[in-house]
Design a protein around this nucleic acid. Structure first.
Lengths: 361, 361
DNA sequence: GCTGCATCTGCGAGCGTTCTCATAACAAGC
DNA sequence: GCTTGTTATGAGAACGCTCGCAGATGCAGC
């Protein structure tokens, strides 16, 4: 095994001290032009490559960022990661990834791992929006934190979110405007402790929910669904609200079938995210339903196939790449020492109208 | 900023030397049960967390692996990454990712970054199957390397590949068996220096190509396409071979339209990977063609939508997750010190028959 | 008693860098 | 002349940990 070359090797060959070689190679402090060239030449000859570990140990900075998301395989997170990766790459930062599978225990372990590896900061999509003890005090410990997709109660750090309530309200309002009165919603609706849907709807209707409530995206989208009904003076039928309970297309597929089997089935469907959308479309495909003739459909997240799945799926497109980029930018600023108050970047989802929405038959 | 606790802090509180505290906390060497508990208690009280950097600096192992793939956002790589991540997670290893965008310069930079961060090994999907100077000599330098999806000429390291020739041959043979005689192929076909398609086909037909040829997957799939024709005694019409030249759905879409505009258009299409498949289906969707009545289609890679895009897309499914897992396993063995000769894991793609293939009209 | 061996602990070196400090040469300013 | 400042270099400490080694203790075997 070829021994790795160190600064000492370079210094010896160049006939200078390790301190001087370090100054040249590390680009700090003074160095005469002649010395400089000598050192560079020696380094090149030996194939010297700096050891970031040693450097980090002393500087206390690793130029590495950790990311904790639910599942890299999911297109939503994959795009976010790409956005993050692009921005970090521009700054010469490394990117350490982990996935939580939306499981608190795994998330805690992931954060622990990143901490041991001394990341300068992390971007987390937390699976618990209430407790999250493992995320508190990170900034105080010198590790910058940016939340993405979800907020955490009482955790005041930079975050990047989609304006879920508005996007969902807009989507559902569009269905109502097309003439639909019975609109089914297929949502995850996981993890709310006071998680009774009926109770939640009552709170929305009474206006006792505030934007500060650290809700999961799917609950926020349900909120938008209820608000659209309120705005149109329509009652919400609890039978049309289907809860998948997990992040899995098949759960959504099952719920969709249940919805369509109702005595008074909906004439339009709203799916609250990419995973749910996939499940819903699977169910519609199972039944060979013709969109938008038999049923109207409005989805969430713009997945590849939505553009060419005939007749084109109308959807609320989250700016996934931009979300990742924004999170990375916020993080880089903090790592660079910015001490501004915490920021909340709320990005709008764009309603892309394609062919899956029409007046009811 | 809360100062991080070190072994020295723990040792002081526990009333032992740093060496003893280190032995307990690091789990090496002897430690009396009583001492052990004292140290653990002190560590817990102080909220001690080991600094992996310092540990790695001395042990020379970082328990971190780097991955270089084309684009994390691509479902193919995303799944591979997930497979890798799962296996590494089991071993308590970290995962550093970078993307090359199929660009050699970026790939070299990525490898450089990973090397500086002292990864114990890397998994690379190289964008240059000939030169790849930056990948040679890694093993000699103590960094284990596993190639995934693509091989490199003369680079004898562990690798994980799909049996592309067989999968493509099988896919095309199935179209031929259904009665198709004019089968269009939409492929990337990028980066071969001797890259004339006609010339390549001649080499396939003469049998001068060998499995050892470090071809890009899309060329291997073209090879399978030609072989299926040979086996059936059919001539290959060069006009039916369309070269996208880049990894982009739109390029495939354009090529598909050109194909369908031919005076004698194909009655069936074969797309050579997920990206091409998406582009092809977009084009078919543009034209409102009815599968498989108007045209038969056989794709590559099993993307989410292929299961529910009516009538169901017949495709050669690569075991993406398993590919990532296999690569990670090979790498872990090497990192654990295995010195077996280099291994080539060739996984079969499974032909999933759905509804997009039927006899020609 | 002594020897041998296993167990336990602390000292101090060292991993490959950065960084502080001391030293020195030299030019500029008074 | 002296001070002050800038540029250049090297010695050596430090980052937080692991590891080799020496020394201490306890216990079995003879």
């Amino acid at each position: 095994m070829k021994p790795r070359r160190t600064i000492a090797d370079v210094a010896r060959l160049a006939g200078v001290s390790t301190a001087t070689a370090g100054r040249v190679l590390g680009g700090y402090g003074y160095a005469a032009e002649a010395t400089r060239e000598q050192v560079l030449k020696a380094a090149h000859e030996l194939g010297y490559r700096p050891n970031a570990l040693a450097r980090s140990l002393i500087t206390g900075k690793t130029r590495t960022v950790g990311v904790v998301t639910g599942d890299i395989q999911n297109a939503f997170y994959a795009s976010i990661l790409r956005g993050i990766s692009d921005v970090l790459g521009q700054h010469g930062f490394g990117l350490l990834i982990t996935n939580s599978d939306e499981n608190l225990e795994q998330e805690v372990r992931a954060v622990e791992l990143l901490l041991e590896k001394q990341v300068d900061g992390m971007i987390v999509s937390p699976c618990d929006t209430r407790g999250a003890q493992h995320l508190r005090g990170l900034a105080a410990a010198g590790v910058q934190l940016v939340l993405i997709d979800r907020a955490v109660a009482g955790l005041e750090v930079d975050r990047v979110l989609t304006d879920n309530v508005a996007a969902a309200e807009h989507s559902v309002a569009q269905l109502i405007a097309a003439g639909h009165r019975r609109i089914g919603i297929v949502a995850e609706l996981v993890g709310e402790p006071r998680g009774q849907v009926a109770d939640f709807i009552r709170r929305v209707q009474r206006g006792t929910l505030t934007a500060a409530d650290p809700l999961y995206p799917s609950w926020q989208r349900l909120w938008g669904y209820v608000r659209a009904h309120q705005a149109a003076g329509l009652a919400v039928d609890p039978a049309l609200i289907r809860r998948a309970g997990v992040y899995a297309p098949d759960a959504a597929r099952v719920q969709t079938h249940l919805l369509l089997d109702l005595a008074a089935p909906p004439t339009a469907l709203f799916a609250t995210d990419g995973t749910m959308s996939e499940g819903v479309v699977r169910a519609l495909s199972d039944r060979g339903l013709d969109l938008p003739r038999d049923l109207s459909l409005s989805c969430f997240d713009d997945l590849d196939w939505m553009g060419f799945y005939r007749p084109g799926i109308t959807t609320a497109a989250q700016p996934r790449l931009a979300m990742g980029e924004a999170a990375a930018h916020l993080l880089m600023e903090r790592i660079d020492g910015a001490t501004v108050p915490f920021r909340s970047v709320v990005l709008p989802a764009e309603l892309i109208r394609r062919g899956s929405v029409a007046p009811p038959a």
